[in-house]
Simulated assay, not measured.
Amino acid sequence: MSDQLPVPLDPVEAALAQTPARVLAGRAGPAYRTATLLKLREDHAAARDAVHAEVDLVRDFGAELVARLQLFAVQTQAASKAEYLRRPDLGRKLSEAARDVIRAQCPAGCDVQVVVGDGLSATAVAVQVPALLALLQDGAAARGWSFGRPFFVRHCRVGVMNDVGALLSPAVVVLLVGERPGLATAESLSAYLAFRPRPGHTDADRNLISNIHGRGVGPADAVARVFALAEQFRAAGRSGVGITEGAAPQLDG
């Protein structure tokens, strides 16, 4: 055995290894170094592109997955991306045409209903969702739970879960939606979960798994957490405040 002590990490390298944030970047006079400035502009452009891009199911998910899951697309009451960004309220409500299509295409009363929404990052949806959809379908099958026909909602905000709950009455709704992109990544996705959501429910009635991306929560871990929460919802008969990951459910009554 060697008697030599391990060489300690350089303090700057140790700090940089812990975060993607722009710390200890140095400077050129009062300004950023050129490499830092160029990377900042690149990441800002990626974030803007993620917000303004549109999801194409076949291009982004692949024709095989779209066909296997019978994925289809509907839209909220926001008629365009510009209106969606100006009017968050319209992104929380399905259009009348969307309601008709969902009623006709999706079975009601399933144990799990997965919805995909573009949210504020089409990039995150394209990168993260294909793997998650397959794992969610497998996880439901392993538990003997019925899995509703998933669909994509364009110009989507989280509150659209309430309309889905009212239309289809699933036990658990899982919304996979693009997070607001930052300068660390434009590929981060959130999974919002709710037990029997209905109009009038708020964020207090929902649970969230965030930071699903390559440097954050991986697909397998995210899906395991989704089903662990769903099992707690079913046992407690509710979701939201009072439901904590890893905790034993507190039963109503």
Rank of each mutant, 00 (worst) to 15 (best):
V174Q: 10
R99T: 05
L5C: 10
I102D: 02
I102Q: 03
V55M: 02
L193V: 13
A104Q: 14
A45L: 12
D138P: 11
R59V: 14
A82Y: 02
R238N: 04
V74S: 06
S80F: 03
F233K: 12
R99L: 06
T34R: 12
D221P: 00
E245H: 13
A104D: 14
Y84K: 07
L251I: 03
R99S: 10
F61M: 08
R154I: 01
A124E: 09
D138Y: 02
V112C: 11
K81H: 11
E96S: 07
V58I: 11
A248Q: 08
S2V: 04
Q137H: 14
A35F: 04
T34Y: 02
D89V: 03
H44D: 11
L193M: 15
I209F: 13
A122M: 09
T244Y: 06
L167K: 08
G237V: 00
A25K: 13
R22T: 12
V172I: 12
G214I: 09
D100C: 01
Q70M: 03
S188C: 07
L5N: 13
V115M: 11
A124M: 06
C110Q: 11
A15I: 11
A50M: 01
A73H: 00
A220K: 10
H201D: 15
A73I: 00
S210E: 12
N211I: 07
V164I: 13
D203F: 08
A31Q: 09
E179T: 07
D111F: 05
A224F: 00
D221V: 07
R180T: 02
E187P: 03
F233E: 10
T34G: 03
L135K: 15
L136A: 13
L24S: 10
S121R: 09
F195L: 05
D203K: 06
G144A: 14
V112L: 14
H201S: 09
V153E: 10
L167F: 06
S146G: 15
L136D: 11
R149E: 11
H44T: 12
W145Y: 15
R27M: 13
L135M: 14
A204S: 15
G119L: 14
R225P: 00
D56K: 03
D203W: 04
A79I: 04
S80M: 07
A247T: 00
S169I: 01
F233G: 12
L167W: 06
E187A: 15
I212Q: 09
R180D: 04
D100L: 05
S2M: 07
R143G: 15
A171N: 09
H213M: 04
V101W: 00
I243E: 05
F152N: 05
R196C: 12
R196N: 05
V174Y: 03
V172L: 08
A47M: 03
L37W: 01
V112M: 13
H52T: 12
I209P: 05
A230F: 04
